[in-house]
């Protein structure tokens, strides 16, 4: 137990250093900073376009009101901020590390290889507009839906977001791990990215089977829908239990898959 605590503590300290290095990098290349910000603002507006489109119709879509849809899209934007901030850069760079053999350097470090390869970079720029817009939309939707923003609701929502974050890490890392075999993964990345867009709308617009697959088998719908369903009190017992079990299942799965993939890694530089 003590060794586990020590390992976690060490990785946490290293993660703070990673964050610091990433921030220094962003401050150094300010042209990149503005370019990224411009890009993200345009993407953000295209996500808000969905709210505009639904709001103007004033229709409850399959029992989901426009205000609830704003809550869903707000959560989707918050989750986009988390994904782009914590994982996206690392996941995109993984195939590069495999192709160029830079993964060799990480293997020699006295740290978990998966940790260093998938969490080394923290993006401080892309999440900013998304976090501001996402939180604003969620708070606004809560007010309109008369959901009290009390400690219990806030804590519960944060816990569901944490659960979704674990799922994001696992589900979107798996396609990148395939690059241990395919080496190039541009198409895989693009398809995985497009899968992310399935969260743009509440899963109630899809049929029952798609919903089941999207929550239990390839849990893409899990990411945005379950935290939002918690807030509007539509989270049934099965989903509530799954919110606790799913992160454990999928994080274990990704860990096993990672170890299996690393065993097949042939260094590009040797």
């Amino acid at each position: 137990m003590f060794r586990l605590y020590q390992a976690v503590n060490k990785h946490m300290k290293i993660y703070v250093l990673f964050m610091k290095n990433s921030l220094i990098g962003y401050m150094e290349y300010r042209a990149n900073l503005f370019a990224a910000l411009t890009m993200e603002l345009v993407y953000l507006f295209s996500k808000i376009l969905y709210v505009i489109a639904i709001y103007q119709t004033g229709i409850d879509i399959n029992g989901v009101s426009p205000d609830e849809i704003m809550l869903f899209i707000g959560t989707y934007i918050i989750m986009t901020a988390i994904y782009t901030g914590l994982f996206m850069d690392n996941f995109y760079q993984l195939p590069e590390h495999i192709r160029n053999g830079t993964l060799d350097i990480y293997i020699t470090k006295p740290l978990s290889l998966q940790f260093i390869a998938t969490m080394r970079h923290v993006n401080f720029i892309l999440p900013v507009p998304n976090l501001i817009a996402g939180i604003t939309m969620v708070v606004l939707a809560c007010q309109r839906l008369q959901i009290s923003i009390c400690f219990m609701n806030a804590a519960g929502y944060l816990l569901t977001l944490l659960s979704s974050t674990c799922i994001v890490y696992a589900v979107f890392l798996i396609p990148q791990i395939l690059s241990f075999w395919t080496v190039k993964s541009g198409a895989i990345t693009e398809i995985a990215d497009r899968c992310w867009d399935f969260n743009n709308m509440p899963m109630t617009i899809y049929n029952k089977w798609m919903q089941r697959i999207g929550v239990f088998i390839i849990p893409v719908f899990f990411i945005t829908n379950l935290p939002s369903m918690f807030l509007v009190d539509k989270l049934n017992h099965v989903y509530a239990v799954w919110m606790v079990i799913a992160p454990v299942v999928f994080l274990t799965l990704v860990r096993v898959f990672w170890n299996f993939a690393v065993r097949n890694y042939t260094s590009a530089s040797s």
Binding site: I61, D193, M201, T204
Partner: peptide, 22 residues
């Protein structure tokens, strides 16, 4: 790229079908 672009079309089709059904 057609396949990935098809996802967006699919989302739109589901969305508008649900809107009109409601």
């Amino acid at each position: 790229s057609i396949l990935s672009g098809g996802f967006i079309i699919l989302i739109q089709c589901f969305l508008w079908t649900a809107v009109f059904a409601s």
